[in-house]
Write a protein that binds this DNA or RNA. Structure first.
Lengths: 235, 235
DNA sequence: CGCCCTTTTGAAGAAAATCAAGGGCAGTGG
DNA sequence: CCACTGCCCTTGATTTTCTTCAAAAGGGCG
């Protein structure tokens, strides 16, 4: 069931019937692997597909006049992009593989015909879009202090990766380099390193060997003033 | 023709037929004035209307944990908000009157029935939404240096207010205080003042008496690395 | 005039960038 | 098996950018 992460993701946003889930799982798609650091969609492109991330982490980014990169959003397994294309607009930004990725591509026309038969699917896509927009606003609002921004970002990743996990301690794969984190938070890698050290010394976040350990999620969320409401993942 | 700014705005994004324009102008609406600094839509609300700004400037904003405000987007005459509500989601942010405003409200059901009869109107709304999203990404990407961010912001306002003006010199009403600009750029009002002085001394931007004067738009755009493509206002 | 709001400027301090240098570790090739 | 290389992480010292605190000046309006 290769598309099942997509179904899981949509189910977190809206209630889907068994038939709707089956329809999604039955969508025809092509699959391909993308190496880390390669673009999945380039700026200016007009994609003809709905792209669904099956494994790995990907990111939306833009370039500054000086050539530096700013990551403006994340794609985690089950999440999608390319929807842009419904109005045939060129991409205003690019999407890149932050780790090695596996992507599924569904032809837009095929997906549209499936969604035309289900109001819930349409609402799910809308909800995902709204959450993305809300996330952009949260990132804008939170960009005042690097330490809190970093803590908030880690909370967001945790909440998006484990929407139903109620435990207060977490340990999960965290494949980003400090350079990449810097591109996300708009700070230098040196400063990223120092802020991570501060969080480590506070006993809130330990990263090592591409694994992150959060000994006390509640304390981390408090430090970050994190409220997951903007992710619209209440279901 | 009270809704004509709305028609003008949509026309800038998609081609509308005479019939479509007439249908929009014939939409029933209620009108009201909102004083500066008062909220138009609050956070958490589920608006039942499409709100169209007829005069004045409004802004989307969120509050930080410390109570300070971050403006995450602008509404200029003819632009709208409340579309959020199509999926009955609560507002993740609030909308406030940055100056005294006049707003029109159209019942969502009424607007939806009008748009169901015109694919162009639907595409116009989508295009506006995409431009808004692209703008959020540009703001995120550009938040590295206060001077360039300020110059870029002024370029954006100019481009949105005068999409068809090809002259290189501009003079127009600019009702924001330096406090408000600070809330937009996420810098202190003191620093806003200093950056404005720098732009004034460079002969790029002169603000006084709620009027802004741009003696050399091309030079300002160059200094800001401003490219209006993300506004999707090519028409 | 006197009040409030806004703008302006100065001086000191905090936050983050920049510059620079090592160190660990995995993979590669002799 | 070990040296080499490339990538990533870590830390220190210095400089730039922006904030904070404080004070004063301008402008519109009762």
């Amino acid at each position: 069931m290769a598309l099942s992460p997509f179904v899981t993701k949509l189910s977190a946003l809206v209630a889907l019937t068994g038939d709707e889930k089956q329809a999604l799982l039955a969508l025809p798609f092509t699959q391909r692997k993308i190496d880390r650091c390669r673009d999945i969609i380039s700026k200016g492109e007009r994609p003809n597909y709905l792209y669904i991330l099956l494994s790995g982490w990907a990111g939306r980014y833009s370039l500054r006049p000086d050539g530096s990169r700013r990551v403006t959003g994340f794609l985690l397994p089950g999440e999608f992009c390319g929807i842009h294309a419904v109005c045939n607009a060129p991409m205003d930004h690019a999407i890149t593989a932050l780790t090695d990725c596996t992507m599924a591509r569904v032809e837009l026309a095929v997906f549209e015909s499936a969604s035309s038969r289900s109001q819930a699917i349409v609402r799910g896509v809308w909800a995902a879009k709204l959450a993305e927009e809300a996330t952009l606003r949260v990132w804008l609002t939170n960009s005042d202090q690097a330490l809190r921004t970093l803590a908030h970002f880690i909370c967001e990743l945790d909440a998006r990766l484990h929407p139903h996990d109620l435990a207060n301690e977490r340990r999960f794969s965290f494949p980003l380099t400090q350079d990449q984190i810097g591109d996300v938070l708009a700070i230098t890698p040196v400063h990223t390193n120092r802020m991570l050290r501060t969080l480590r010394e506070a006993g809130l976040v330990i990263i090592g060997q591409r694994i992150i350990h959060l000994p006390d999620v509640a304390a981390l969320r408090a430090a970050a003033s994190f409220d997951p409401g903007y992710l619209y993942a209440s279901r």
